[in-house]
Every structure is written in C-alpha cells, then in structure tokens.
Design a binder for these strands. Sequence first.
DNA 1: CATACTTTTGTAATGATTTCAATAAACTAA
DNA 2: TTAGTTTATTGAAATCATTACAAAAGTATG
Lengths: 135, 135
Amino acid sequence: MLESHQYLRQFSIKPSVQRSAVMHFLLNNRIHPTIDEIYMALSPTMPTLSKTTVYNTLDLFVEKGAVRALAIDEKNARYDVDISAHGHFMCKSCGKVHDIFDLKPSMFQIPESESFRIDSVEISYLGACKSCKGN
Amino acid sequence: MLESHQYLRQFSIKPSVQRSAVMHFLLNNRIHPTIDEIYMALSPTMPTLSKTTVYNTLDLFVEKGAVRALAIDEKNARYDVDISAHGHFMCKSCGKVHDIFDLKPSMFQIPESESFRIDSVEISYLGACKSCKGN
DNA sequence: CATACTTTTGTAATGATTTCAATAAACTAA
DNA sequence: TTAGTTTATTGAAATCATTACAAAAGTATG
Ligand SMILES: [Mn+2]
Ligand SMILES: [Mn+2]
Ligand SMILES: [Zn+2]
Ligand SMILES: [Zn+2]
C-alpha cells in the first residue's frame, strides 16, 4: 500500500485511497485485468468503491503513463502496469492474457513515417494456451 | 460483383447476394471498415439488408479465412480483406486505420513457445495522422 | 410440387462503457 | 479554524456495439 502510494507519485498522480488500492492490485496481480476484475477484487474490502471510480482511475493512470491499455481483447479493455516493451498472447478459449517477453527489441521500434506521428506499439498474438490446447 | 463471387468461392463461401455485396465492398474500400460502415454503405442500394446479416457475414468470412478481424480499435471491430502480413496504424484523433506495409517480414514470425499454440499476430501502432497532428 | 436445409431478417436482450449530477473529500486563503 | 473553492467519488441512467433467438424467405434435392 505505501509502495503503491510512492509508485503513483512517480507518475505525478495524487494518491487517493481508491487510486492506491487499484495500483496496489495492479502491481501485485500481473494478469492484465479487466475493469470488472479489478472492481470485483477490491469491492469486498472497499464496499463503497464505485465501478465508475475504477474507470476514472484507469483512465487517469493511462493518461499519466503509469499503465498501458491493451486492445488485444475485443470484449473488455485490459490494463498492464508493466510499461516495458513486451508483447501479449491471448488464449481465444479461456481469454487469459500472458506476457511475451522474448521478442527482439527491434520489434518495438517506431517505424519512420511521413504520414503519421506514431506514439505506441502493440504486438499481440492469439491462439490457445496449454490447458486449452486439447479443446 | 462477379469478381466478389469468384473470390468467395476461393474460400469455399457460398456466394449469396448479401455476401457478394459485402465482399465487393471490402475489396473496393480498403479502409478497414466497421460493421456499421459496411451496413451504412450498402443499405441504400440494398434496403432490406439487416445489420445482423452483416455481423453473420463477417463472422463467416473470418472463420473461413477470407477476412481478418482487427482489434486495434477498442470501440468497434474492424475488418481487413487484405490477409497478407502487414501492420496497422490508428489515429487516436480521427479513428481512421491505415496499413503499415514496410515492416520486416521477421516481425510476423510466430515466436516459439512451449506454453501456447500461437495462430496469429497483430502489430498495431497508435498516434496521430497528418491531418490531425496539429490538434 | 414437397421436403429439408440454409440464409436472412427484425426484435429483444446483454453487457461494457460513458454521461451526468449529487455528495464527499481535500485544499487554500483569510 | 472556517468559509470558500477545487477535486474526487459515487450511483443512476443513457448509450451503443454485439449477441441471441425465432420467424420468414430463399435454395437445393428428389
Ligand atoms: Mn504485460
Ligand atoms: Mn490492412
Ligand atoms: Zn486457455
Ligand atoms: Zn487523424
């Protein structure tokens, strides 16, 4: 909790109780959670927490660069507190999202373009995970 | 229209009037359209067309491998009739999706993995396009 | 034609996200 | 401290893409 507090300050985010709780969850659950997963995980110990606050909070985290929003899952937005260069794999069967760390750093370079100002890259893989493979 | 007909057959898709019309639109409008854009474009000349049919048709096209679904746009699914290896750029301001063709072929290789069976890759870039840059 | 099978259609349900106004909390200046 | 001001949180309602479903239309087969 105090660490989350510190962590938020590094991104110049004012650490409210709710924001610290959300960041604490993200730092300790590297599962690329959805808004609902975050809300469900926190609401037992924070009964007054509103889902709108979770939306607001994640929007703020993304805006401040503390968290990255992933588009890999068409059903729900997913959030990643690990902002280092890495890719993701989603199992089309169970929906879990995993990190793919062993990719060439060059893959995350921004290509030259006259036409666009490119701000970010997302590298996504789809398929079946080990436990869903035999399905 | 006849070409779309032929094209569908190559993917063993029975070419109904609606399916041919959708494929014709995709082949001639390489804009990575949303379901709604396809529906809006076709309904004037096909007044009985149902949006459900557009959904069904695109699901079928994707299942048969004739079209690729893109996750780059969190708001709507987007569809690409170009199934060759290439990346995409979306302007966060105007929402338009453009092709990025000049990427190393190696970037589209499937990484080795003990844990997953990877079926597809998506490489996405976000930023601002030329006409939105000054915003 | 008659039957079975496939496709299309319209409506209703679902569910994630957004909007918005009211309340609560944090901050500032006197 | 207190009053006034700004910021954050909350809950309810609205929006909107997508899905589910059953009826109607179309197609193929004998
Ligand atoms: Mn990650
Ligand atoms: Mn494309
Ligand atoms: Zn799985
Ligand atoms: Zn633009």
